[in-house]
Write a protein that binds this DNA or RNA. Sequence first.
DNA 1: AATGAATGAGGTTTCATTCAT
DNA 2: CATGAATGAAACCTCATTCAT
Lengths: 199, 199, 199, 199
Amino acid sequence: MRTTDVTKTSAGGTARRAQLVGCAIDALVELGYARTSVAEVARRAGVSKGVVTYHFPSKEDLLGEVVVSLYRDAGEQIARAGAGDSVMSELEAYITSNLAFVAENPRHVRAVMEVASNVRPGDGRGEDPLVTHLQELIERGQASGELAGVVDAGVLAVTIRASIDAAAARAAVDPAADPRAHARHLATLVRLALRTEEP
Amino acid sequence: MRTTDVTKTSAGGTARRAQLVGCAIDALVELGYARTSVAEVARRAGVSKGVVTYHFPSKEDLLGEVVVSLYRDAGEQIARAGAGDSVMSELEAYITSNLAFVAENPRHVRAVMEVASNVRPGDGRGEDPLVTHLQELIERGQASGELAGVVDAGVLAVTIRASIDAAAARAAVDPAADPRAHARHLATLVRLALRTEEP
Amino acid sequence: MRTTDVTKTSAGGTARRAQLVGCAIDALVELGYARTSVAEVARRAGVSKGVVTYHFPSKEDLLGEVVVSLYRDAGEQIARAGAGDSVMSELEAYITSNLAFVAENPRHVRAVMEVASNVRPGDGRGEDPLVTHLQELIERGQASGELAGVVDAGVLAVTIRASIDAAAARAAVDPAADPRAHARHLATLVRLALRTEEP
Amino acid sequence: MRTTDVTKTSAGGTARRAQLVGCAIDALVELGYARTSVAEVARRAGVSKGVVTYHFPSKEDLLGEVVVSLYRDAGEQIARAGAGDSVMSELEAYITSNLAFVAENPRHVRAVMEVASNVRPGDGRGEDPLVTHLQELIERGQASGELAGVVDAGVLAVTIRASIDAAAARAAVDPAADPRAHARHLATLVRLALRTEEP
DNA sequence: AATGAATGAGGTTTCATTCAT
DNA sequence: CATGAATGAAACCTCATTCAT
């Protein structure tokens, strides 16, 4: 329980909001989406239900904050990873930084997965931008001849993304999992699949 | 609506059960887990709520049947695919038959995904048997020298499984997706990753 | 409390529905609109809250039924009153039958007033059809020369309607009030206002 | 929005109170009683919720002030209208000044109606003093022979009052309505009803 | 087998009010 | 004077489940 005393901790309700988001994450990880109610989050925070709806007018707002705060944190960290000087090293940096973030925030990642798998996408499809970005990266490398063109860029992009997510899911639930090792092995796998015959 | 008249169709109400499972699948696909209620399933079947609870003592039983019936069908079909004469061809058959099944049963697959992401796994951990099976297969190939040993068998197994699931998720929701093509490209990817230097 | 045993009273839930409407009327009269909750109605009926929402999916449905059942009853009774052979006698019949109905159903009338004064009219205005009907009647009499044209038909129509409603409000709350006497005096008033100089 | 800057405007916060009453009126007119919350009033005033409860210990106090401020204003204006030299002219002055006030303060009037229809009268019954006053006036005229005695003074009093209120309700909601014209026509109506046969 | 009625728990949200700063 | 945080009650609604017929 994140019942850390929050009084006098920070100006504005920022601390309280952060605490509530933290409790929501805990509830999502431990109970799943369906059993994560406003009441449950309030209970974990040791406050009344009203406090939650005071800081987050609706449940959607609270869970939305769980999601965006992850994207904010992940975005910052992954941006710092910077790009490599070749497509392959950029791919590797992508994989590594993603799973490094996962290794450090397994529960937050898991919580967002719970939310994502239970929110009906408004109107429908829409390519996953994460996958699209990967695919374009790979295609660029293939076009320049740096990478072999045998394997389908789209399928490889989906596969990389899915592998990262699977490792994340695992890490969130199994403290013994090692997302960084997964990253290394996945990078190897990708390198093998994309190596040109004669370097 | 699967309101096919079911009266006097079969002994023991097996047909009614099948109809209800079908309606549950439809509801899961169209409304998502949260909005799939017993009442909704009954409405779609054109019967009263009592009928559902009569055939399935609890909601869990109904959704459980959605899941096991998929595993039953998939198991049969994939078993028929048989094994190849080499580990690589067995891997390929696994990938292909899995995604062939997905291509033929996208809605049922999607429904099971809805259920799976909302049912808390009994107590927790537990290796995924599907992944374990793949991993053992790969390790066998690597031990015999048929396959290269550079890549980590566990990570590759997880990645294959994740890639298949991602393609399935996509196919279930996007009629334009082509799971069979995904299977071919994924098989290529695996072959590249596992090929020995000098065959 | 209308906790009359309803079991085995009638086929279908019609009796239960009627009982709930009755309890809603009682609550509206005794507590007013704001304090008339679904829970309160259930309590008065001696049933659980769920019963109310079972028969009336939403609170709006329940209160809507309070209103339409009044209009149904009133419509039938007033229709039976029939029309007179002159405009004046028709006006008199209107006033009399309206207040006779009020005299017999003071609580139901009061309940509907509570609802009416608390439901925001969807888009806005819209002439009150009851008033419009009266106004047309009066104008017809004035055009034919049967009634004096000095007084404004619209204002008289509004005034008659308002007077009836005021008497109704009074009757609903004061058992000593006499709506039928009010009707006689109001009719006299109208006759005086509309009499021609030389008959 | 009545967000007029009120700081340092007046001693004792009288201006703030007036501003809040004004915002409450706006909310009542635009949203109705049910949706007029303390928070809404504060929002419209551009201040925090606490300000409202500071100046008005309870919601009832705020809405009460909406009502009494109307009665105060109306009382002053109607008193200025003065009395006529005959009962009939006094009746006419009453009707005219009432509806003149309505014509000038339609929103305030509407707001008070919202409140009135949602506040349970203390214990119940109680003659309406406004009606009683009218009734006594009429009876006086009838006793002196100035007015005809055919029509019942009580019913006429109720009817006049109801007609004024109906016109007020209309004016509050329909800017095209003309309460002053209503007053003239109503006065005519009353005169006709009370004229003696041979003057 | 099937139905419709009933239950009661639980969910989200709104709100008047209190209070420390 | 003013604020923002917190509370707790109450409202409406949904739903899985039980049961008599």
